[in-house]
Measured scan of single mutants.
Amino acid sequence: MSGIALSRLAQERKAWRKDHPFGFVAVPTKNPDGTMNLMNWECAIPGKKGTPWEGGLFKLRMLFKDDYPSSPPKCKFEPPLFHPNVYPSGTVCLSILEEDKDWRPAITIKQILLGIQELLNEPNIQDPAQAEAYTIYCQNRVEYEKRVRAQAKKFAPS
């Protein structure tokens, strides 16, 4: 494992614990031996107030490669969400998460999670990743928002 990646992720964890947006979660997972795995984080993004996503808490896994922060983490909703920019596998399609697009090593975990929260309610229809959600979003916004509200209710924190 890269010392650069681990040191950056340790800084990220410290900064997150000191200050993070209300309702968001970002925690490194534990290895079988109980030690912390900084390369694999369990996160959760709350649906934004005043949107059909409100009330939901959407679980996301963030996986970092050894060359982080040169390369972005892979962000994957578990379980996958109904959304035009979420692949059926759950992987998020967002330009700041793509090395050859808008990724920059200075982007923080907090910025990534806030960017994904923004994307939930403002899909990028130029870059669809899920045919069904994309089609319904474009053709029947009322039905799309109904499905999103049902999903938010399903993923409401207990």
Rank of each mutant, 00 (worst) to 15 (best):
G115W: 00
I116Q: 06
V148R: 02
G115T: 00
P52Q: 11
A150G: 13
E78Q: 12
L120H: 00
D66M: 11
F22Q: 03
R8H: 08
Y144Q: 02
K76S: 15
W41D: 00
V92K: 01
E42G: 11
A106V: 12
K30M: 09
G115L: 00
W16N: 01
A5P: 08
K146D: 14
A152M: 04
R13Y: 02
R141W: 07
F77E: 03
Q111S: 15
A131M: 06
T135N: 07
H20M: 00
M62L: 08
S7W: 08
F155G: 06
S158P: 13
K49D: 09
V27G: 08
K153P: 06
D102S: 14
I112C: 12
D127V: 00
K110R: 12
L63A: 11
A133G: 07
P52L: 09
P46T: 06
K74P: 08
W16E: 02
F77R: 02
A106K: 00
P84H: 00
L114R: 09
K30L: 06
Q111F: 15
T91G: 15
D66L: 12
E145P: 05
P69K: 06
T108C: 14
P46S: 07
C75V: 15
P21H: 05
A152S: 08
L119P: 01
K153H: 08
M36D: 06
E143K: 10
K76Y: 15
R61N: 14
I116T: 13
M62N: 02
H20W: 01
D67Y: 06
S7I: 07
M62S: 04
F22A: 05
A10I: 06
K74F: 15
R149W: 10
I107L: 14
R61V: 10
Q126C: 13
F155I: 08
L97Q: 05
M1S: 06
Q117F: 12
P84V: 15
L57H: 15
E98W: 10
I45L: 06
G50D: 06
L57P: 05
A131W: 01
Q111K: 15
P105A: 14
L97F: 07
A106L: 07
L119F: 15
D102I: 06
K153C: 09
A131N: 13
N124S: 06
F155D: 08
R104F: 02
R147T: 14
A26E: 02
N40L: 13
F22D: 06
P105C: 12
D102F: 08
L94H: 00
A106Y: 00
N121C: 10
S158C: 08
L94W: 05
P46E: 06
I125G: 02
S89W: 09
A156Q: 12
I107V: 14
E78D: 12
